[in-house]
Amino acid sequence: MQQSTRALTLTLAAAALLLLAFPFAESKFYTQLLSKIMIMAIFAMSLDLLVGYTGLISLGHAAFFGLAGYAVALMTPQYEAPDLWTSLPAAVGLCAAFALVTGFLVLRTSGVYFIMVTLAFAQMLFFLFHDTKLGGGSDGIYIYIKPEIRLGETSLLNLDDARHFYYFVWIMMIAVYGFLRTVLRSTFGHALLGIKTNEHRMRALGFATFRYKLAAYVLSGALAGLAGYLAALQFGFVNPEILSWHQSGAVLMMVILGGMGTLFGPVIGAFAFVLLQEMFSNQAVLGAFAKHWQLLMGAAVILVALYLPGGLAGLLARPGRKKAIEADDG
């Protein structure tokens, strides 16, 4: 098992480094597309903490994603760039606070009710921004100028530059992965897996499971907020669509497609989902049928659900797992 784990780690590290080299070879279009995918990967990893490691299936995760986007847009005076040092912690902090408050309520439910209540909270936010003038209604608001970090005269990081933005997002994605891996290896992470596996037994052992679930919910919401913040900066505008249940559904599909409970699976899922979406909706590839890309997307998800129960990550991890069990029996 050690060997296959190492092989997997090396594969993932190689893929991450390959991504690092990418902007030098390819066009701006693909650099931006990959930035978008890496943002979705952060979003999907944050959801995996709930779905794959705590056993909480949320269908309202876009609430945090969109809330952070609106937070940075509303905090920024028009025709000025958002200040990275204040707006990023503020947006992420707001999402954590929103998760803490809503978590107190949604975590009193479980199973299908949990799905419904998380969806309901996200829809409330959607209609708050859709039906009021708070965030420009259904048109949304623009962020015209992107943040820049300067040291004297030299620009250290200019997020208006596609490459700079790409590397900024890459660092964030790696940092989130490393952070979550560390957390999941801790006593806290092990307790979450225990709750996912058998919550009743965890309580009997003396774990106040509600607190653990709430902490996971807040952490997950905050990281989803980080993704939403980055997305708002990349696209330069936010509208209610980023809070809609389509968005919550898409990120859940990325997690399932990639393989929940693996952390790297949802990253693969984000790549697969967005790239498939690009391909299926590309008229140059599929002609007039590209209009109906969601049909093909649905078919792809069904195929994975039927034939790859462990998601795409299962393709990478499965041989190792089999070997481990055989070695154990022998």
């Binding site: 290896r185 801790s186 006593t187 052992l205």
Partner: peptide, 26 residues
């Protein structure tokens, strides 16, 4: 799905104040 040791370790963990040390291996 857990090993025998992890089952017992998790049980023992419930008695200790380390639960929120999130940057140290369980």
């Amino acid at each position: 799905p857990f090993t025998v040791f992890e089952n017992c370790r998790l049980a023992a963990q419930s008695r200790t104040p380390h639960a929120w040390r999130i940057f140290r291996r369980a």
